[in-house]
Design a protein around this nucleic acid. Structure first.
Lengths: 354, 354
DNA sequence: GGTTGTGTATGACTTTAGTCAGCTTGCTCT
DNA sequence: AGAGCAAGCTGACTAAAGTCATACACAACC
């Protein structure tokens, strides 16, 4: 029985908090390891291969983010559920600013029940995950054509944990290590890159049904771009391992993925051409034409994006976008209702941008 | 024996020429079909599924390029060797302007021996091709890791027909149907896209060891970009079918391909960011830094590109590039020898472009 | 009901890079 | 040798878009 007990590692610099947690967990039947700072935590994690890690964010020497990053890189520990401990005041900041690199977070002070519930939930999820493979792998064998492969990819997102993001919440950020594939259930999100002087270029606006953060998973590296919710979003998290296993072990899925990527390369190159030589009028109309489809509803498109975001999409200054929009309004191409842009006829815009 | 005879279709509007060819081929033991214009040619090709097609370029109604395009789209005829008949005067133009969509071309007037030699060569090649799979497919089974998959991809180019291109020759052009994968043996080539007002953006400079024209093959469509030799090039032609079969039938190769594509997407997106917000100075230095690697030799890089091409790489006007180069020269970052740009220290350039 | 904050709009000015035209250099071809 | 041509370079001018400052609209909040 004793070797079936779950092992939990607690990394926390405050002695009282650390011992308190350790005590609770021990009473609840877990095997507990403790570390009083990040470095020790990493060592312990590698040594004991715990089933779950609780980790404070604010610590001297190596903070929680650093620990997560190091452990994510190590194949032996990258799949371990990771829960952040955060002071109440930090929480808001942390959610907004960093995206959730971890599986969950617990706000200090916490009560015992909440702590145990959260841990149990994560352990259960992680278990289900590990088992899900042996089950599905057989099921996959039946798919032999491409259409099915696509379905397969979509089915990957079924029945996963849903996480909710508020407007402007970070979904993932440049530099973080990729641990999940994100599937947009509702709402819209932007993927963007930031250059040295802080200017932002949006490379994609994702709508329900789209996947986010695929490339870094395929490359097995850190994110080189970031993603943020443009409006309240529901997003399913597919663990990296599930995605990779599906993509690389199934011939048909690999083939489908190759086509998806090839298509994306082509689109991105076309984007390059437009960014390089189009005048602002063309860039802005091109952006509107693309957004038009994504925001279509009952034959009318109502685009509620900030001018700032439009500018990042077009690769121009905010004021320039605003001026161009004013022109379009005067020409009767668009209407502006409140701050939203309303498009009645896309084709004229398409003609401008070619 | 009679059903082993090779079937050849001759499409040629000039009656004398047509009958002359038909006679020669019949004497040589081929089964000959004729068509007096493009449309009839397409019908005959679909009807008789010839082993090889000879086709005039200049014809009323549907010209040779049109016939090739239509037949390339049809899976039943897309693999058929296709030889153009061209008048002597046309030849130069044709090579330079169109790239070689066809397998070969014969210049009129031609002598019988040359005609028969060319046909035999093509039939032999096409045969070898069709057989090569059953042979290699077994051989492929032994490869089970990624490194080998990469080798596998490279091995694909071994022992293929080499075609030589002169400086500024078109390798493939936008709108043509993809029939080959190109592998650069020696020399350098550019891939580029042209916008509506004729401005050119170079997306890649390929050096020996690189493949060209992968994406349209994977997508199974027409080229959406073009490729041109920057200097005399030797390029191996890998038939589409061989490439696709390797990529899609071998799990390990698919996996390698996915990684290659994912990497390319990332690079292209980074390119986007630079094109969007960098000042010319940064763009030009970035371009030089990249070219520097490609043109390295004995620790010194000597870039013999036209200013026009540099401009297309950076996405700016030619004069602007020239001015920026003059600045760099004054600052001692580069030297200009003849028309070539000589780079001693790349790092300074890298620092400018970040 | 005023204060604060966020986002949009517009005006005045500056910077940047594109355009056009002309000049120079070196090479090829007769 | 000199005509013709392609490619590089330079100067003057122009157009385009970015920057900065400010005003305005509207919602949230005490």
């Amino acid at each position: 029985m004793s070797n079936q007990r779950h092992k939990i590692l607690v990394i926390e610099d405050n002695r009282d908090v650390r011992e308190n947690i350790a005590e609770i967990l021990a009473l609840a039947g877990y095997e507990v390891f403790v570390a009083e700072h990040g470095k020790a935590g990493v060592e312990q994690a590698i040594l004991h291969k715990p089933d779950l890690i609780l980790c404070d964010i604010m610590m001297p020497e190596l903070d929680g983010f650093g620990v997560l990053r190091i452990l994510s890189k190590n194949p032996a520990t990258s799949g371990t559920p990771f829960i952040f401990l955060t002071a109440k005041a930090e929480r808001e900041d942390f959610r907004r600013g960093m995206g959730l690199g971890a599986d969950d977070y617990i706000t200090k002070p916490f009560d015992d029940v909440m702590l145990l519930d959260t841990i149990e939930l994560r352990l259960k999820r992680s278990n289900r995950l590990r088992n899900s493979f042996d089950g599905t792998e057989h099921g996959l064998q039946q798919f032999f054509n491409e259409a099915k492969a696509q379905d397969n990819l979509l089915a990957l997102a079924d029945d996963r944990e849903i996480r909710r993001y508020e407007k402007r919440d970070v979904i993932y950020a440049e530099g973080q290590i990729a641990r999940w594939l994100f599937f947009v259930v509702s709402g819209k999100a932007k993927s963007y890159r930031v250059n040295d002087i802080g200017k932002e270029l949006i490379t994609k606006v994702s709508a329900p049904g789209d996947f986010l953060g695929m490339i870094p998973l395929l490359r097995g590296e850190k994110y080189t771009d970031s993603a943020m919710a443009l409006e309240p979003c529901e997003i399913r998290l597919v663990p990296k391992e599930d995605f990779l296993k599906l993509v690389f072990s199934q011939k048909e899925v690999s083939a489908a993925m190759i086509k998806v990527l090839a298509r994306q390369i082509e689109e991105t190159e076309l984007h390059l051409l437009h960014l390089a030589y189009d005048a602002v009028r063309e860039k802005v109309s091109g952006v509107l034409a693309i957004l038009c489809e994504r925001y279509q509803q009952d034959g009318v498109s109502r685009i509620p994006l900030l001018r700032e975001d439009l500018a990042s999409l077009a690769g121009t200054a905010k004021e320039t976008v605003i001026r161009t929009l004013s022109e379009f309004k005067e020409d009767g191409l668009i209407e502006i209702d409140g701050n939203d842009i309303v498009i009645r006829d896309v084709n004229v815009l398409r003609r401008i941008s070619h």
